[in-house]
Amino acid sequence: MRSYLIEDLFEADIEKIKGALNEMQLQGPLEGIYYLPLPTELLQQEQKDHQDECGPYFMALEIIEGASDMSECQLKLELLTRARNKIRCSCVNYATHEQRKHMIEYLDQFIEELEISV
């Protein structure tokens, strides 16, 4: 799996991130998983064609909380474009360069706006 990993976060920063993501109602079905929506204009043609059946599209963000120290607190953004209504379909695939760039910049800006230093 391809991913973007941010490591060495403090537990207080993780709590701030979780609070903001919960406020935005981006929780996934599992604890510590959040769905970051992918803008429609960045979808591939097949994803646009499948929007009604498979969409909406997102990338999963996992919050990994350390058991013993801050070096184990991480954010892991999967660089896979997922479909909310279907697990397996040809429209679910690795992010394009534009999707990847946008979502990494989105996550970086989100963290910066929370005044978290990484």
Rank of each mutant, 00 (worst) to 15 (best):
M103T: 06
F58K: 04
D69W: 08
G66V: 04
N85R: 14
E62A: 15
A67P: 02
G55E: 03
R100Y: 02
C91P: 07
A60G: 08
E53Y: 12
I104C: 04
C54K: 06
E65T: 15
I104H: 05
L77A: 07
E72I: 02
L77W: 05
M59C: 15
I64G: 02
E53V: 09
N93H: 13
K76N: 14
D52M: 10
Q47M: 05
M59D: 02
L79H: 03
L80Y: 14
Y57I: 11
E46L: 14
I104Q: 10
H50Q: 12
E78T: 01
K86V: 15
K48V: 09
C89Y: 04
E46G: 07
D49L: 11
C91S: 01
I104S: 08
Q74S: 08
E105H: 11
G66K: 06
G66C: 05
G55N: 04
Q45S: 11
M70R: 14
S90A: 07
I63L: 12
E62D: 06
T81Y: 01
Y57H: 01
R88M: 09
M59V: 08
Y94D: 13
L80P: 00
Q99I: 02
Q99K: 05
K101I: 00
H97V: 09
Q99R: 10
K101T: 15
R100M: 14
D49S: 08
F58D: 03
L75G: 03
P56S: 10
H50V: 00
A67F: 11
R88H: 09
D49H: 01
L75S: 05
P56M: 07
K86R: 12
